[in-house]
Design a protein around this nucleic acid. Sequence first.
DNA 1: CCGGAATATTCTTGTCAAGGAATATTTTGA
DNA 2: TCAAAATATTCCTTGACAAGAATATTCCGG
Lengths: 115, 115
Amino acid sequence: MNPTTLNALAEPNRLLIIELLREGPLSVGEIAERLHLRQPQASKHLKFLSEAGLVEVRAEANRRIYRLRPEPLMEMDEWLESFRGMWEERFDRLSDYLLYLKKTGSSLKPKEEFK
Amino acid sequence: MNPTTLNALAEPNRLLIIELLREGPLSVGEIAERLHLRQPQASKHLKFLSEAGLVEVRAEANRRIYRLRPEPLMEMDEWLESFRGMWEERFDRLSDYLLYLKKTGSSLKPKEEFK
DNA sequence: CCGGAATATTCTTGTCAAGGAATATTTTGA
DNA sequence: TCAAAATATTCCTTGACAAGAATATTCCGG
């Protein structure tokens, strides 16, 4: 997994940009407007995202249209793959947990133990 | 998606810690040793990861054993879910791409267009 | 209850990057 | 060719945080 990708996504406004672009390519001005950013900050974040490989640009007349690149997200997906065993394992114990809740009427987690 | 999780994982050593803990819980000393970190830095990173909810601790004798918490990773997984359509769509065009390679003998990407 | 092992905290220093404001650059249409 | 729209860049200040070194704390076994 590439820390550069994570770093780029760790900034809240950049994360919002990525989520916005999920719906389709947009110009800088549109991105700035929809996220209530000033244009220079939008440009700066887009440059950052671009250098991280998360977006790509194309020029169209006066505008610059930014679009998502799926590759880094695919890499994240593959990285997470190696962890999926963990929560499937825990899911096996879910029925026990539900039973516990039913018995106690509690909505609090039981103190978890592990070894 | 929570930026806190991404921020915690964006630091290379912390990412390594998470990958190491994938194999099972470890003490601070073991983590420091296996990643060639000094003990104080290991402790600091673990504190950071702990506050981000990525790990949990338990005391055992003299040691503190850290263990992965799957929840934030599950959240990442669900977040990525909303992007999976993207690369599946692109996958549909793979056969065209392979055909292109065969025709041209080129190993270079054709210039991609999008609108 | 004391010494030492394991771990945590504090302090300092350097780097990175975010936001604001101002300005430069690019590009198009008239 | 020029003005204006769209975008990029620069400069500044500020805050976060990583690493190193030193020190504090915790806790077990003897």
